[in-house]
Simulated assay, not measured.
Amino acid sequence: MKKNGISFLEHRELGDVMWLRDHDRALALAAEQSKPVLLLFQEVPGCSTCVRFGQDVLTHPLMVELIADRFVPVAIFNNHPGSDAEILRRYDEPSWNNPVVRFLGPDGKEVLPKLADRYDALGLHQKITAVLEMRSEDVPGYFRLLGRDLLVAHGLSKCVTYTTPCFWSGETSLAQHPAAITTDAGWVDGEEVVQVHFDPREGSSPDLDAYARAEGFAPIDGGSFELDREPQFYLRKNSARHLPLTPAQRSRLNLAVPYRIPFAELLSPQQSAWLADPQLQQSSGDETYRQDIRVSWPSLVAQLGSIGKGMRSWM
Rank of each mutant, 00 (worst) to 15 (best):
L88M: 14
V160C: 14
G186F: 13
L208K: 08
H154C: 07
T161I: 12
G54W: 07
D120R: 13
V196K: 01
E191F: 13
P99K: 12
S34W: 01
L150I: 07
E32N: 10
L243R: 01
P262D: 07
F143K: 09
N78L: 03
F233E: 04
A175P: 03
R260K: 12
R70Y: 04
A28I: 07
H23N: 02
D209P: 00
V51L: 10
L253R: 05
C47H: 13
R118H: 15
G186V: 05
E93F: 02
F143L: 11
V152N: 06
S284Q: 05
S204E: 08
A75Y: 01
I220Y: 08
E93Y: 02
R229V: 03
L40D: 05
Q249S: 06
F217N: 06
W297R: 00
E93G: 00
L145D: 13
T246I: 11
R102L: 15
Q249L: 06
W96N: 07
L208S: 03
L280I: 05
Y142V: 10
V196Q: 01
P231Q: 09
E265Y: 14
H11F: 06
W19L: 05
L145Q: 15
G5Y: 04
L38R: 10
A273M: 02
R12K: 11
H125R: 08
E133D: 13
S251W: 03
D228V: 00
N79H: 02
Q55F: 00
R90H: 07
G203F: 07
P61E: 04
F198N: 02
A26P: 06
Q55H: 01
S306P: 05
R312P: 00
L88K: 13
R118V: 13
A116Y: 13
R252W: 14
I261V: 11
N79I: 03
F41R: 10
S313G: 09
R135E: 14
M63W: 04
H154M: 11
A273Y: 03
P61L: 10
G141P: 03
R250W: 05
A214M: 08
R12Y: 00
S306N: 15
